[in-house]
Design a protein around this nucleic acid. Structure first.
Lengths: 151, 151
DNA sequence: TTTCAATTGTTACAAATGAAACTAATAAAA
DNA sequence: TTTTATTAGTTTCATTTGTAACAATTGAAA
């Protein structure tokens, strides 16, 4: 009997377009870049600056360490972003009374105005994406992310 | 009549954990880093090197320009990755007969052995993630990515 | 207490990255 | 053909990033 035809045990190549880490990275990169265009145009912020800024806006008063943990940014990145945001008058530092190593970071009034405008743009951006996607796929994507995070 | 209680027109803060670009970026970053640990341990490759390598493995013979387009990497990144992969004996260049600007890149025998081992690890990694996620959420995530890409 | 370890944030140095300039070659236009 | 424009890939330089060392302070251990 001749050689049997059969599907190969293992595919001999990996199709990157179908490989989850690759797909996720591409999707994230494209979306991040699109959104970055918005806040760059409005404020000139870099990505690390936006992340630090948004974290302070969300939590009111935080330390640099907290920003690093919450946004998984390296502490030197945070440090530099904070310097830059401070120089533009969008955030202020106050030293902790009890522990003099710590600095509390909060937005200034000017910072809050920028923040309010930015998150409006952010919501609009997100809504546009979700609408373009449609309700079903949007829910699927969000649900998938939920589960991925719970892992 | 007194002031009516009502939900605010606009939320005053943006919760980053619920913001799509942020969630996608985090998920992608974590997954990429986890997978990078695998190929780093096995081969010492960097992320750009893995991407270039996997692209060549998938398509057999490609140009540097193609790698850049397909994986959305900057051409200098590709150029450096190719040099590095070549030095380790995993890929070889052959010049095009008709157009001497072009270099055709392909894996060497040694490269193919590394590739075979790596994509097995890749599949295992992906399967582990999807299994941990469960069938329903996996399908939801994949479907969400499908639609996101079609946009 | 005194010493040693841990923590917060910054700085100095080295590696990775991207923009622009560049070389070599081909294609298109005059 | 001669000139000009375009393309492939590399190199140079400036910027960004991360690692490691650091100063300042606090907590824990001896």
């Amino acid at each position: 009997m001749g050689k049997q035809a059969s599907a190969p045990e293992i595919e001999t190549v990996l199709k990157l377009e179908e490989f989850l880490p690759y797909r996720l990275a591409r999707a994230a990169e494209i979306m991040s870049r699109e959104f970055a265009d918005i806040y760059k145009k409005h404020t000139g912020m870099t990505r690390p600056e936006w992340r630090a800024f948004a974290t302070i806006g969300q939590f009111g008063t935080v330390t640099a360490t907290f920003i690093g943990q919450h946004s998984s940014m390296h502490k030197t990145k945070v440090s530099r972003a904070v310097v830059s945001l401070e120089q533009r008058g969008w955030l202020a530092r106050t030293s902790d009374g009890a522990d003099r190593r710590i600095e509390h970071l909060a937005l200034t009034k000017k910072g809050w105005r920028v923040y309010a405008a930015l998150i409006e743009e952010a919501r609009k951006f997100e809504a546009d994406v979700l609408q373009a996607l449609g309700e079903g796929p949007s829910n699927a994507l969000i649900s998938g992310l939920d589960h991925l995070e719970q892992r």
